[in-house]
Write a protein that binds this DNA or RNA. Structure first.
Length: 619
DNA sequence: GTAGGGTTAG
């Protein structure tokens, strides 16, 4: 009896190890009696294959059955939490470790430190470490990783210095961590010290160094290191090759990246994905799609590259069809995937679909992730659901700069200036440094809400207090703000003051022209319109704005002449349209279009609404 | 018969 239990268990372990988890699970489910080792074997199988959800649900089943978890159980369960980045589940398992009395097991404690480190919770990792009376190399390395991974480099260095014996992996952890934070000089310094010590750099050392160069846009430094790698003999290692490839792909020389790609004996998924992504970044969708089709095996990253690339280039529908393709090939979306899909949803302004994605991300446990949360804030705002944005924002587990910017824009977009400025206050209070985007959001908000004084203060503090330089868009926002408020002279002066070419920049000129039509300044407007035609001869904007200017003053003949001149130049204005989503169908409306099937009913409703707005006491 | 660390790509 016992021997058959042993036999089946070893079979399960072997099957799971080789990736045949379906067969392994069949055997496991057919067992009449399972002891702890049997549960552990199945659990470890899922955990190692990256099937974190399955692992955790098996762990749960084990708890409600009679089996008693042991240190093997906990290490497998914690590794599933660690690799899926689920701090919530990890903390629950930690509680069960204490309940089961295993808090002095070295392996379990090491797994706990690893889990907290991967979930970016160095503080808890440190607490576990403090309570340990027995430690080994793994303990120290995991603790070091915990601090380095969460960007706490002073603490990481302290731990590194305290380590009883510095193994290669500790050097690699420090180098990789410093590199990820953009500390390229400290990173190279570490590498020098490593060479001076008795530790030998390996493929991971070089991979981390090259990634550090990529992170800091140090192409030249990366090239030097590339030659060092060739001399060291590690250049054929997959890890090094992939990093080198992504260095060239990301820092612009796609042809160099292609050379590495074509010379690579082992074409790993990483190489393919890096090239696809480089094509996407360069806006070369056709080439990216071609490479994607040639990919022998597509993983989550490959599909996500396609989704995000098409979404970024404004092809929302195509992006969503890639998402559908991914789902039907049974790949599980992760936080990056959801973020990219939400990006597509905000471009298409399809609230219903966006909500569905939100639900899906929630069920998979990703809705509190920063990349997903930022996408949700943006999606809800663009789809007109400000409350949705607010809820999504408050759900984000660790808000970053993009989260604050997205929420600021959301309020700004909906004309809620007070709340937008509050977001900025909260952002500063949280220690997050504002960037150029933040100030675009602030200035736009001030402009749309007529907060001219606040606008001036932000514009000034942007340079003096935050050390940021003005870009054309910031100046244009200010010009727009002053122009809307009727301060046309000041607006023009400002535009002149900050122009780099001596001429008013095109986007400031557009803003000024807009202000001229709002305030009926025909002469100035005409002059600016001619200037804008010189600045952007291929754009229809100058003609449209000038024509609007004449229309506002009732100068219909002049307006018609401008429109005709535009057509003569071969320019066409894309008509603006509005659209709504009703029961999964999007209907769009263009001015002057009478062919909508329900046009008559719609006109009646609009007539009624118009009447009601003009006579608010009617009802 | 089961277990614990770093690794590149979106």
């Amino acid at each position: 009896m016992n021997s058959s239990l042993f036999q089946i268990t070893s079979k399960i372990a072997a099957l799971a190890r080789s990736g045949c988890f379906v067969q392994a699970r069949k055997l496991f489910d057919g067992m009449s009696y399972r002891d702890t080792v049997a549960w552990n074997s199945m659990l470890a199988g899922y955990s190692q294959l990256g099937l974190h959800q399955e692992a955790l649900s098996l762990f749960h089943q084990m708890r409600i059955s009679n089996a008693k978890p042991d240190p093997f159980t906990f290490t497998a369960a914690l590794s599933a939490c660690a690799d899926s980045g689920s701090l919530l589940n990890g903390t629950k398992v930690h509680a069960l470790v204490i309940v089961s009395g295993y808090q002095s097991s070295l392996a379990v404690n090491n797994s706990l430190i690893d889990m907290y480190g991967k979930c970016l919770n160095a503080f808890s990792a440190g607490e576990v470490f403090q309570a340990m009376d027995d430690t080994n190399e793994v303990t120290w390395c995991s603790l070091l990783f915990a601090y380095a991974n969460s960007g706490q480099f002073n603490a990481a260095r302290e731990i590194f210095n305290l380590m009883p014996r510095k193994v290669d992996i500790a050097w690699n952890t420090m180098i990789a961590g410093l590199g990820r934070c953009g500390e390229i000089e400290l990173c190279l310094d570490m590498f020098k010290k490593m060479l001076q010590s008795l530790c030998e750099p390996d493929q991971w050392t070089y991979s981390a160094l090259i990634s550090a160069c990529t992170e800091s846009s140090e192409l030249l430094c990366g090239c030097v290191l590339h030659s060092v790698i060739i001399k060291s003999g590690w250049s054929s290692a997959v890890e090094a090759k992939n990093s080198i490839l992504s260095l060239y792909a990301k820092l612009g020389s796609l042809s160099d990246a292609m050379k590495i790609f074509e010379s690579t004996g082992i074409l790993t998924q990483v190489s393919w994905n890096a090239i696809i992504d480089a094509h996407m970044k360069g806006g070369n969708l056709h080439e990216a799609f071609h490479m994607f089709q040639c990919l022998p095996e597509k993983n989550t990253v490959s599909w996500t590259s396609m989704i995000s690339g098409y979404a970024k280039n404004g092809y929302g529908e195509e992006a969503l069809s890639f998402f559908a393709g991914m789902v039907s090939s049974h790949l599980l979306p992760d936080d990056f995937t959801f973020g990219s899909v939400l990006h597509a949803c905000s471009n298409l302004a399809i609230l219903g679909y966006g909500r569905m994605i939100h639900g899906s991300a929630f069920r998979r446990g990703f809705s509190t992730y920063v990349y997903v949360g930022n996408g949700l804030v943006n999606m809800y705002a663009k789809c007109g659901d400000l409350d949705g944005s607010i809820l999504a924002f408050s759900d984000i587990y660790e808000k970053d700069l993009v989260s604050f910017n997205a929420m600021l824009f959301a309020f700004g977009l909906h004309g809620k200036a007070k709340q937008a400025l509050q977001v900025y206050e909260d952002m500063i209070a949280s220690g997050t440094k504002p960037d150029k985007m933040t100030f675009i959001g602030l200035l736009m908000t001030c402009s749309h809400s007529g907060l001219i004084e606040d606008g001036h203060v932000f514009f000034e503090s942007m340079r003096s207090a935050h050390g940021l330089s003005y870009e054309a868009d910031h100046v244009a926002c200010m010009v727009d703000m002053l122009g809307r408020g009727g301060y046309l002279t000041e607006a023009r002066e400002l535009a002149n003051k900050y122009s780099k070419t001596g001429y008013i920049e095109a986007n400031s000129c557009e803003a000024l022209l807009g202000a001229c039509s709002a305030h009926s300044e025909v002469e100035t407007g005409t002059f600016l319109g001619e200037e804008l035609k010189v600045l952007e001869p291929d754009k229809e904007m100058s003609y449209v704005l000038q024509s609007n200017l004449y229309c506002a003053r009732g100068l219909w003949k002049e307006a018609a002449m401008v429109r005709k001149a535009m057509i003569d130049e071969g320019l066409k204005k894309m008509p603006g349209c509005s659209w709504i989503e009703v029961r999964d169908k999007v209907t769009s409306f263009v001015a002057g279009n009478h062919f909508h099937p329900h046009m008559e009913e719609l006109c009646k409703i609009i007539y009624f609404l118009d009447f009601e707005m003009r006579n608010p006491c009617f009802l």
